[in-house]
Design a protein around this nucleic acid. Structure first.
Lengths: 209, 209
DNA sequence: TAGATTGTTAATCGATTAACAATC
DNA sequence: TAGATTGTTAATCGATTAACAATC
């Protein structure tokens, strides 16, 4: 049995940044780039860039460097950005509303197909052309629609329970903005955005200069 | 000359999580906790907990463990949460508006004292009881007010330029939500929240099961 | 006192960086 | 061909885990 070559999370987290820089090069009409030049721009070592990329294949050419378009498209595929994803939002508070209106996600292939909230005031209203449903309808919605990603923007009190419903409903990934650690099976991917934690990291040592 | 014991960023990023779990214990009336029991709850090793904490001091007691209140208060201090911070938001799009209305920041000691936007439609409107000013007024505002943290929720086109104004104006930290890497002096702390990057990390390998 | 659990040193593991043969 | 730059192996560095003496 061949051991699946597990890519480290540190590498994966750097991929979007590579993708971003390559996109800029592309927009500027740059057709080739060496790991050395990219390292200068991104402020990481050329060694790391080459190591990172070679986890996924040999995209460069000795003496030449990397073809920008080709590498851009490869990373796009690696990140799964060549596919489309059905998304729902659970929790239409300020943050949920903001995310529902963020046009860029759509352009990247992440499409909102459902919005859900708990409060009766929100249910029935429309955001981004989608009617807000009640969280109680979530189970049947998941049964009828293939949902790839659920955005969890509920307060922590309800987030845990709803995450169970999402898991049972076959959601593949949860983008968790609620301030709890979800305890769900490894088969469902979780990406946390803990805003409060992030702000606390910023305030650490801020007055020491 | 004594080499300043530099705390690694990995450790710092774990502190808010410790703080969160200790807060829960506190709320549940738990008065003492061992690294072993905390490790079980947080799903990290007891060794790591003890190593992390001992970067900052000896807060435990052999044979007893850690006093929850005491440790909670210590981490609060370490994170700088015993102080108050003046914050402004640059960019009152959906995300900026959402953050301006997030009541929890205020409770943690992060107080909004100014809001700024580029668009003429936004300038003059009121959010969270604060009048939105124009970004062109930013320089004079920074001269007259001590701003600790600036939240950067502008599109990347304007984010770079505004970050310069913020640095020149003496801001200590920037909470950067814009999709660029800011090139500013090390003396100003930056904490990035790259939402698009985060979503891409989630979509990585999502369809492979 | 005996048991529990810390603080800390040592061992291990993984990630980053350096070096260089291969080759375009 | 000579120069440039990759892919990859080896060396280094740092972070995590294990072990245990100290001690409450």
């Amino acid at each position: 049995m061949v051991e699946e070559n597990k890519i480290s999370i540190a590498v994966i987290k750097r991929l979007p940044r590579y993708y971003r820089y390559l996109g800029e090069l592309l927009a500027n009409g740059v057709t080739r780039i060496s790991s050395k030049e990219l390292s200068r721009r991104m402020n990481i070592t050329a060694s790391q860039i080459r190591q990172d990329l070679n986890n996924f294949g040999c995209f460069g050419q000795q003496g030449y460097g990397y073809n920008v378009v080709l590498l851009y498209e490869e990373i796009k595929k690696i990140l799964g950005l060549d596919k489309n994803y059905n998304m729902i939002i659970c929790g239409l508070g300020n943050l949920g509303k903001a995310l529902s209106n963020y046009y860029k996600f759509d352009r990247l292939g992440f499409n909102f197909i459902g919005l859900f909230d708990i409060s009766q005031e929100m249910v029935g209203t429309t955001w981004n052309n989608i009617r807000v449903g009640c969280v109680s309808e979530l189970e049947s919605f998941l049964a009828e629609n293939e949902v790839d990603i659920a955005v969890l923007t509920l307060p922590k009190t309800s987030a845990c329970k709803v995450s169970q419903t999402l898991v049972n409903g076959g959601v593949k990934g949860i983008w968790n903005f609620s301030n709890v650690d979800l305890h769900i099976p490894d088969s469902v991917r979780v990406e946390n955005v803990h805003l409060t934690d992030s702000l606390m990291v910023l305030s650490y040592g801020l007055n020491e200069g």
